[in-house]
Design a binder for these strands. Structure first.
Lengths: 125, 125
DNA sequence: AAATTTATGATAACAATTCTCAGTTTATAA
DNA sequence: TTATAAACTGAGAATTGTTATCATAAATTT
């Protein structure tokens, strides 16, 4: 993987975004910035960065993928009201994995958890 | 929701399939059966059945959704080798939810867990 | 059995993503 | 340094999974 200005900008855009954005969202904010990229380049780089483990792709939310610059082990929460995505700690992860490996005999390489509910803003109306 | 022969066949096809199929897979096997349905009808019914809680839609696996006739609480495992999807027990679910609610303050309405790894067939080459 | 509601198939439309390809950058090697 | 190769880019076409449209048909209600 070579260096490229565009890829750097994509990473940068992700880092500046607390609320894990979709490709479309990133595209829009980058388009308004002084470092716009084409859609093809954006998707290409999101895939490459994911592949390289520099960002995380979050599937299973609505129709489109979300992206996360936080690569440490953690889970995700999506608010059914405001649709924002939050990181949540994955404290019981080891227990979950061990338990499942024991029950099934399967070899677990990774796992993802998505919670749905109301965030602290939305739960108080 | 009215009765319909086609919807019954869709449910039937799902029940006969241990390995949670995609819409495309169901469409293919039904097309070869003596109860074929159109793609539109298939998707319509999968959505309705999901809505009605009679089946479960599994998002976050590859590109397309998988469907599960098992509506009891459980998690899913996809084999990275053979791509089959298995049910796994959700025994620690309560602990996971409670822990996360306490740490975040969020109200959790539901959660999904997807494991990736090697199933019993594939782990032995 | 007429009227109303809901379902169907064929196919068009759609949204998210990937592919193609000619031109440009970046890295490598002579 | 050039010059060669490898990786990257933007524009837009193509693909994929899914939903919408609509005329007809089946199911339910009266």
């Amino acid at each position: 993987m070579n260096y490229s200005k565009q890829r750097e900008s994509v990473l940068q855009a992700l880092r500046e975004n607390v609320v894990h954005p979709t490709a479309e969202y990133i595209y829009d904010i980058m388009s308004k910035s002084d470092n716009p990229v084409s859609l093809a380049t954006l998707y290409r780089n999101l895939n490459q960065l994911t592949e390289a483990g520099k960002i995380k792709k979050i599937d299973g939310l609505e129709n489109s993928a979300h992206y996360d610059h936080n690569t440490s082990e953690h889970y995700h929460f999506i608010c059914t009201e405001c649709k924002k995505v939050f990181d949540v700690p994955a404290e019981v992860a080891d227990a979950v994995v061990k338990n499942t490996e024991e029950k099934t005999g399967f070899v677990i390489q990774s796992h993802d958890v998505i919670f749905r509910g109301l965030c602290n803003n939305c739960k108080n109306r």
